[in-house]
Design a protein around this nucleic acid. Structure first.
Lengths: 196, 196
DNA sequence: TCCTTTCGTACTCATTTCGTACAATCATGA
DNA sequence: TCATGATTGTACGAAATGAGTACGAAAGGA
């Protein structure tokens, strides 16, 4: 049987993620994860060498899964506007339950190599997104006189906004907010020709 | 100057509350509270003898404040339906940011006397609420053939519901949900005569 | 039945946290 | 300007907690 599909291992990953999401890394102990997962410490150390190893695995998984989901959206036959709208919605779902605590803990307590490793992963992701938008620009979906870097920056700002309760409360449903945001996004960057 | 109005003390209470709310009690250290509050450890120990002392003070304050707010609603000249509606809204606001972690920590780690102390406070509060509803029943605001204890129980259930995202998402604004809930509450318990 | 996996407990060692002490610093009004 | 009380940062020993390992018992499938 493949080790990575071991049910105990999966449970550890899942409960680890849940606890880290809620409380950050340093506040969660290995014993606590074992308790919550209904698994003995020996089993934990069978699959992971320490807490940070578990964190890395969790983050690896997240990068992997979210990459796949993102690509399946961007490589689909949907119209460009729909792709962007869906990818924002996707990102929002992924980051919803995340505590900022997790990231500050990660950058504060993970060893530099690990931080470096994920910075590179993150940069590769950003680069890929940038490529997607650069291609869209070339294809005429986005007007020519706008920096792709600005778009990336702006997308991140939009993502932040989707988690802001003050904004959220303006809408009946989160989806309405997303729609409003993406609409705004497009009428700012879309080629005027598209609308004529 | 009154000790209890000392600004440093207030800051400690406030940041303590924030951290406890988010992470529970056992995950938060005194040094962390001091750091976050921008206060030295000596100052902390000047006002509180240990972490649990701080917890008790915070809970005391909460009981005290929420009691006052509740009474100001119930002793007002508002119609009974309005009183109930507002008191549910009040309770909801008070419990919104609370993590269940806080309470499980409290019951799990506080010494028995302290738990006992707050159980009594809580019971006194419940008794007071029960009295309010008993009086309302006597005054004819509530139909006679209903147990006050059932009402109390049901109010708690309603409160739980106001924090349920599945329910929340059915409404445009939380206020709409509260209104729906209280409406339901009343058309179940109100004297029929009122409606004729 | 045997063999592997998992569990619970117990243990050591390192780290963290607690609570206290003390000298240095700051604020402020006489 | 000085005195005084409040507050800070640092340091420290004691206590508690968490990490990681060892091992015998239990469970469970072949």
């Amino acid at each position: 049987m493949n080790v990575s599909s071991n049910p105990k291992r999966k449970t550890i990953l899942l409960t680890g993620k849940e606890l880290f999401w809620k409380f950050g890394i340093k506040r969660v102990t290995i014993e606590e994860i074992c308790m919550e997962a209904g698994v003995s410490k020996m089993t934990f150390y069978k699959f992971f060498s320490n807490k940070m190893d578990l964190v890395r695995t969790i983050m690896d998984d997240i990068f992997d899964i979210s990459l796949k989901e993102y690509r399946s959206i961007m490589d689909s036959d949907l119209p460009f506007t729909e792709k962007v709208s869906q990818s924002i919605l996707l990102k929002r779902e992924q980051t919803k339950a995340m505590s900022s605590e997790f990231f500050s803990d990660f950058y504060g307590h993970a060893d530099p190599e690990m931080v470096e490793y994920f910075e590179q992963l993150k940069n590769k992701n950003i680069q890929m997104i940038a490529d997607d938008y650069a291609r869209a620009q070339k294809d005429g979906d986005i007007r020519q006189d706008i920096k792709v870097e600005f778009i990336i920056y702006f997308l991140n700002q939009l993502l932040e906004m989707t988690h802001d309760d003050k904004l959220l409360n303006l809408y009946d449903h989160p989806q309405d907010m997303i729609m409003e945001i993406t609409k705004f996004f497009f009428y700012g960057i879309l080629n005027r020709e598209v609308h004529t």
